[in-house]
């Protein structure tokens, strides 16, 4: 903690030193985030974890900071993928997938950490403009010709399913200021977090106004024996199939040797 204070002091000093040069127009506030690593490996038994992201405000107004009017929202966004949402309906008493809607570029996962509840930070409209927050995320339908009501219904279902799977999450209070300009954000990685290039984005708000955004990339990979099997199954699928068959034949033959009764 002592070290952090020292760091904050240095940043503050450099800030005050910079003031005289632009006395009339104070330097614009900015935000930076840093990841201690650009790749995270998770093993087969991964049961979810918290990822901590550190960041700092650049040129914060000390008065605003003291009053707690700076808000930060940090998002860890999974790789975008097309998704099909299907709805079951009854046909002759049987539940059948009938209607469907395809969405382009839906982030596979989306976890948010905020300083305060989302509705306290800024207006619903600015969230919409920024496409920020799981409930404001813009989902692009593949077929824009569908009726808005249908698209809305399937978008809501998509968000609800993602949240139920733990892939879309919100951590209110997950961003904490450690000093006037240093903050720490805790975002959740779901147990079923998808592999690929994730994007960490930080949004800075001042008294409800969006100021700046900054982002960093994070690669999530799976490692371990199970992942090797997965890779082989996809990259060398023919050999994998031959292996699966041989394994079954040998097991059957061994089973006969070990347990023969005639």
């Amino acid at each position: 903690m002592k070290g952090l204070k020292a760091l904050a002091a240095i940043v503050f000093l450099s800030f005050t030193a910079a003031v005289p040069a632009t006395a009339q127009t104070p330097l614009a506030e900015g935000i930076q985030i840093g990841l201690s690593t650009d790749a995270v490996s998770i093993t087969a038994g991964f049961s979810g974890a918290d990822l901590t992201i550190f960041g700092s405000l650049e040129n914060p107004d000390p008065l605003v900071a003291r009053q707690g009017r700076y808000d930060v929202i940090v998002v860890l966004e999974g790789p975008p993928k097309p998704v099909v949402v299907r709805r079951k309906d009854r046909v002759l008493g049987v539940w059948v997938n009938l209607d469907s809607e395809t969405f382009e570029n839906v982030p596979v996962s989306y976890s948010v950490a905020t300083t305060r509840p989302l509705q306290d930070i800024t207006e619903p409209n600015s969230y919409k403009q920024l496409s920020l927050g799981a409930s404001n995320l813009y989902m692009q339908p593949a077929d824009a010709g569908d009726s808005p009501a249908t698209i809305e219904e399937f978008t809501a279902a998509l968000r609800e399913r993602k949240a139920a799977a733990g892939l879309y999450s919100e951590n209110v209070g997950g961003v904490q200021f450690l000093s006037q300009n240093l903050f720490r954000a805790t975002v959740r990685l779901a147990p079923n977090v998808p592999v690929g290039t994730h994007k960490a984005r930080a949004f800075l708000f001042k008294s409800g106004l969006f100021i700046k955004e900054s982002s960093a990339q994070l690669e999530i990979r799976k490692s371990g024996f199970e992942q090797s099997i997965f890779r082989v199954a996809h990259d060398y699928s023919f050999l994998y199939g031959v292996f699966a068959i041989s394994l079954a034949m040998v097991t059957g033959w061994l089973g006969r040797l070990v347990f023969r009764k005639d």
Binding site: E226, A233, S237, G241, G252, L254, G255
Partner: peptide, 30 residues
């Protein structure tokens, strides 16, 4: 065997780990 091979190559849906556990139990149970 043919089905397994084609599923493995076209759909990548054969799980050897799962299959092996079932076989091991199955051979003993039989």
């Amino acid at each position: 065997a043919y089905t397994t091979l084609v599923h493995a190559t076209t759909n990548q849906t054969v799980d050897v780990m799962l299959a092996f556990l079932l076989m091991a139990g199955g051979v003993a149970g039989a």
